[in-house]
Design a protein around this nucleic acid. Sequence first.
DNA 1: GGTTCTAGATACAGTGTGTATCTTCCGTTC
DNA 2: GAACGGAAGATACACACTGTATCTAGAACC
Lengths: 198, 198
Amino acid sequence: MSLSDVPEPQRRRHGAELQTALLDAAWDELVEQGYDSFTIDAVAVRAHTSRAVLYRRWPTKPDLVKAAIASRAFQQSLEIPDTGSVRGDLIAFMKLANGSRAQQGLVLITRLGAFYSDAGTNLTELRRGLMQARGEAVDQMLARAIDRGEIDPAKLTPRTRRVAFDLFLHELMLTLEPVPDDSIAEIVDEIFLPLVAP
Amino acid sequence: MSLSDVPEPQRRRHGAELQTALLDAAWDELVEQGYDSFTIDAVAVRAHTSRAVLYRRWPTKPDLVKAAIASRAFQQSLEIPDTGSVRGDLIAFMKLANGSRAQQGLVLITRLGAFYSDAGTNLTELRRGLMQARGEAVDQMLARAIDRGEIDPAKLTPRTRRVAFDLFLHELMLTLEPVPDDSIAEIVDEIFLPLVAP
DNA sequence: GGTTCTAGATACAGTGTGTATCTTCCGTTC
DNA sequence: GAACGGAAGATACACACTGTATCTAGAACC
């Protein structure tokens, strides 16, 4: 046993520093263990603190989970690509989404399940967040496409606007893996473009 | 306390009768409590037996859950409507699916989440089952549509074949509610038919 | 009617949750 | 810079659930 085995000089953390460490530990546990094997004990150990510190902030396990997700999963907003064509824009955007933290959050939240019934949250809320975030991006890409004459505005309905991302999300949710490039291209080329091209 | 409060005449059940009672109790608990609050204790109480009887058959909680789902969720196969038009067939089929036990199973399994990591199952398996079940139905409906000249066979690709049900399933998974008739009609009229009509 | 199987009861160790209490550090204030 | 107060961190507890083990008595089978 060397002296370096002694873990920490016992400095006490406070405020934001501690808060962040707690939520980070919770998030990591969540990602590694999944909701079912997630224990407050383990979070406390990982954060080098005691359960009391966690219970002081979040009265129940679902509360902590919710907070951890909120703190990490949906912070990132995607940049909107501008490749010169709708096709390019859409494909690039979906590829970005594939690797984003939102994707990670979605995978996680889909593995969560049990959490919804507990916490009164549900997938509809998640959807609303995602829709809103991507809605603006889609609007922008489509507006440019109309300017360029690539899309017939008369053929754009709420449903046709959504269709590409609905299919993308659907595939993502079912496989919990990044959507392959082939599928992305297929969605754009076989579904979206034929529906809205002039 | 009347005599009628005495619960049961202590008859012992065996074999299939007992098995069914156990799985029914497990299924009901699952639907009412969700996976996270699901306890083997509660199943035993509901089935008027002891936990030992359950553990004798299913060594762990996920095993019991899996068995309960298998026993109930995917038994029902949908009849294939024949209304005289693809449009009518597809819409009728989705409305049927809305009310089916498979829908109930899907809603449940989506609420499950934690179960997947436990049991090594995942949504991909569910998907495979659903795809296969509905694939035949879709094939049959589309074949009739081609005969009637409603669909251009050249426009049918694996992706266009799937698109209507992908969108249907997606909406179902996100809302965990039956898909409204409006949405069903929209999917068929704004997406599917324009893509494959001659 | 005796044998065998197993339903059903009960007890136990292990683990996790959530509450309560206590000491001790750290930031704030006078 | 000393005193104060709040919160960190430790510890102990009651309760619930899991999974194992053991016992007894009802049902099925010969």
